[in-house]
Design a protein around this nucleic acid. Structure first.
Length: 286
DNA sequence: GCGACAG
DNA sequence: ATCTTGTCGC
């Protein structure tokens, strides 16, 4: 276990990470979104963000770009690297100050289901939540946490990362999980608690189908398979919505999520949620 | 025009 | 995301 602190500064240093390393405009995108500001051109910001998503999207890989296996079969000859370290990230928000949040990164040993690493950072978010652009609000702090882990404890760096949000199940096929995956160059999986209705997907039909089977492919009107509705337990009514983030196939992504499910939400994401919420309570109101 | 809209 | 008590069940 690492660092219980998590209250450094404001996270300005993370701004460049969301822009993909290029495009580091040192302007002030922050003022644009503050309450009471005049009718600035929000559409212009959305256009820039959309371009950025489209550009990063071209780097996505939809296959297993790693050598480990979730459950390696016994092999006499060649030892197969097993999946061991699974990461999870999430943000929790302050009750009274919605712009104050705590980002969390945890790493779980999949065999023991124990948390072997945790790190937090309290940040002040300048961007509002805009559906379809979640990454521009939440990825900077999460990328910073990943980088800190890589620098200070590379031996505990996860083989795959579960992200609270969507991967390619997104209006432009590039949600938070994909964004983080490309930026940090790590295999990622999107795990959403609610269905993002995209490409003709609708709740009613998915919920009905997921009542029958525990795995319902999410096929859009375009015919593309955008993800999988998953019920980890047969008694859980509400499914999860798993989608490819980056450098992984949907089949493997589903295997990984299933392997991590002690409860409805996969343990890495659940722990990141619980612990970031705990940090918020510790630093702010009861 | 109206509603819906990951977190 | 967050506001919130008890409650039904193993």
């Amino acid at each position: 276990m690492q660092r219980g602190d998590g209250n450094d500064d404001d996270g300005e240093q993370t701004r460049s990470m969301q822009t993909g390393g290029r495009n580091d405009d040192h302007g002030e995108p922050t003022r644009r979104w503050q309450t009471g500001d005049r009718n600035d051109d929000h559409g212009e910001q959305l256009r820039i963000w959309t371009q950025q998503q489209d550009r990063l999207k071209s780097q996505l890989l939809f296959y297993d770009d790693f050598s480990w296996k979730v459950s390696p079969a016994l092999s006499i000859s060649l030892p197969i690297e097993p999946l061991c370290l699974v990461g999870g990230v999430d943000l929790s928000f302050s009750k009274h100050n919605p712009s104050v949040a705590c980002g969390a990164l945890v790493v779980v040993n999949i065999k023991s289901m124990e948390v072997i690493y945790e790190d937090f950072k309290i940040v002040h978010l300048h961007m509002p939540y805009i559906p379809g652009f979640l990454a521009f609000r939440e990825s900077p702090v999460l990328l910073m946490l990943l980088e800190r882990l890589a620098n200070e404890h590379p031996d505990r760096y996860p083989q795959v990362l579960l992200v609270d949000g969507n991967g390619i199940l997104h209006p432009r096929g590039f949600g938070l999980a994909s964004h983080i995956g490309v930026m940090a160059n790590i295999p990622t999986i999107g795990v959403a608690k609610n269905l993002y209705c995209v490409d003709g997907l609708c709740r009613e039909r998915i919920h009905m189908a997921s009542g029958i089977t525990d795995e319902t492919p999410l096929v859009g009107n375009s015919g593309k398979i955008l993800g999988m509705a998953l019920r980890s337990h047969r008694d859980s009514i509400k499914p999860m919505f798993v989608s490819i983030g980056h450098r992984i196939s949907l089949d493997t992504a589903v295997d990984v999520v299933r392997e991590c499910c002690k409860y409805r939400i996969p343990e890495p994401v659940r722990q990141a949620d619980i612990r970031s919420r705990g940090q918020i309570r510790a630093h702010f109101g009861a």
